[in-house]
Design a binder for these strands. Structure first.
Lengths: 303, 303
DNA sequence: CGGACCGTTCAGAAAATACGATGGCGCCCT
DNA sequence: AGGGCGCCATCGTATTTTCTGAACGGTCCG
């Protein structure tokens, strides 16, 4: 049983004549006669009563007509959907997100994606910069955000924002950091991040011209943890400036007023997948959300 | 797009390999490779991602998979219904009924038909003997009941019952028919049926040996009308014995006690359609309901 | 670096399908 | 009543489609 036979069945039933059906199907009368015959033999059911005036559906044919119609309709739906998919981007995209969703404008990104590409389903996976980058390279993620520089040649990286950082101390240490210089800060107990964390590199830069090695009283991996330890009065640390200001506003941290190096917010995808329509489209939407153009797309050489 | 391509599509998607799908479909691997290729080209959509390990559905393929499945399912339903129809009688049957449904056991007939052949839909069409017979011959009816003999060679007739008749007079004429002979009855005013009505023939038989021509004060066509005219005191007439007795019970008629010829209740179908399964089945059920065998099937010669 | 898998492509073979002609059957019109 | 017409079934041939087996290119793994 094949669809062309069902099409013939329906057409013959509608027209009541093999001859007329043949004309409308742009084929010969014996051809469609054969279609009907083959169908009847395969189904074991006489579909038409042959009369000198044409073909009349038998009661059995009448019942099967509906089923044949449904089958053709289902096939037609498939074609229609296929046609729709031709001009429509479809698929799941897994994006690594390394810090809070609000700062990362995930809401806006999601809304914009849904408007432009309704059949694209983004997955936002909370992770850490140090894990996101290798996950992108391994293909576990289709793309991802992270802090800090990146010089893997197989990644296509977009700089989205320069994120200012600020040194924050527990409120109790207010007078100890007021007007302090970098050397005095280094003598305070520090909450550090692990070496894989991009904040670590910023801290290193901070103290590169200071001969005092800061006292590292704790190592943590997330900004949440840093905030929490500052709040508990454990030590001084680096936070995003907006985070730092909020800490001060909410009364559990005080900001150091001196200059602090910033960090880059970046977005990366695999360079060799950059031509995939889905990857290209999502990257473009992200650039729109962060209001940066293609010029922000830096591609370093070397592995 | 053909069903065999969709079957291949589903199988390849399920197995993830052209090779394995080919084995299960009892064909060669290049063959199903061609199926997929043709499908993809016709739909304008890449269904699978080719990898060294096999075939993986693309997101587009994933969406179309469901549609393909539905199409195949619809086709499968068609086959299933066709198989069911092979052993099941289907169709509409138009039966002419010439008198009241209760007497004709239409309820029992319907119940029995529905039990034995649930997909057969009987139509019971109220009509008159004189119309039913030609309607059967013309094909307007598939079969029908009627009173009286029938000698059309193209009909296959079954005698179902010998229906006794009784002469009934208005109650007021009680003493005029008590003990009357046929000659005296003939002198009363008669309610007659038209010549086409089989009751007419019975009346003729009744008076064939009497020299008095009965006074025909009214001609009607239905038993209902006959009853009504008797009730109104218009004249004497013939009724089915059960009808007559009810008239007497209900006090609007009185029965003549003398012998009265009966009439045959018959059922007919076109002789040349007697081999149609539907006709054969319905005829058989009717014989069961009336508890007669094939021996009651009389087939006269001549037109 | 060679073998194991897997999918694609190709040319020839096989099968299915289409075509044109023919015939039978009922119907209509003369 | 008979010739013509419209309809479908059948048949042999022709065409198209589909299938097959072999060869090829790629990736992965030991």
């Amino acid at each position: 049983m094949e669809l062309y036979q069902l099409k013939t069945f329906i057409k013959v039933a509608d027209e009541g004549h093999l001859t007329r059906a043949a004309e409308q199907l742009f084929t010969s009368q014996p051809a469609i006669s054969a279609h009907i015959k083959a169908l009847e033999e395969e189904l074991g059911v006489v579909l038409f009563q042959r009369t000198p005036k044409g073909m009349i559906l038998t009661p059995e044919g009448e019942l099967l007509y509906k089923q044949a119609e449904q089958t053709l309709e289902a096939a037609e739906n498939l074609k229609i959907q296929a046609r729709a998919l031709q001009d429509e981007l479809v698929g799941d995209v897994r994006l690594g997100v390394h810090t809070d969703f609000e700062f990362m404008r995930i809401g806006g990104l999601h809304r914009r994606l849904a408007e432009t590409y309704p059949r694209v389903r983004p997955h936002f996976i909370q992770s850490m910069s140090s894990i996101i980058v290798p996950d992108i390279r391994k293909g576990n993620l289709d793309g991802g955000f992270f802090f800090g520089p990146c010089n893997f040649g197989d990644l296509s990286v977009t700089r989205l924002l320069d994120v200012p950082m600020t040194i924050v101390a527990p409120v109790a240490w207010h007078e100890r950091i007021e007007g302090a210089d970098i050397r005095q800060l280094a003598e305070l107990p520090w909450v550090y991040t692990s070496e894989t964390c991009p904040f670590h590199a910023v801290s290193m830069t901070l103290f590169e011209n200071v001969d005092v090695e800061p006292a590292k009283v704790a190592f943590v991996d997330s900004e949440d943890a840093v905030r929490e330890l500052i709040r508990s009065g454990v030590g001084v640390s680096l936070l995003r400036r907006d985070d730092a200001q909020r800490a001060q506003r909410e009364g559990y941290g005080c900001c150091w007023s001196g200059d602090t190096p910033g960090i880059e917010l970046q977005f990366a995808v695999q360079k060799r997948r950059g031509s995939e329509p889905l990857i290209k489209a999502v990257s473009e939407v992200i650039r729109q959300v962060w209001d940066v153009g293609d010029e922000a797309l830096s591609e370093k050489a070397a592995e």
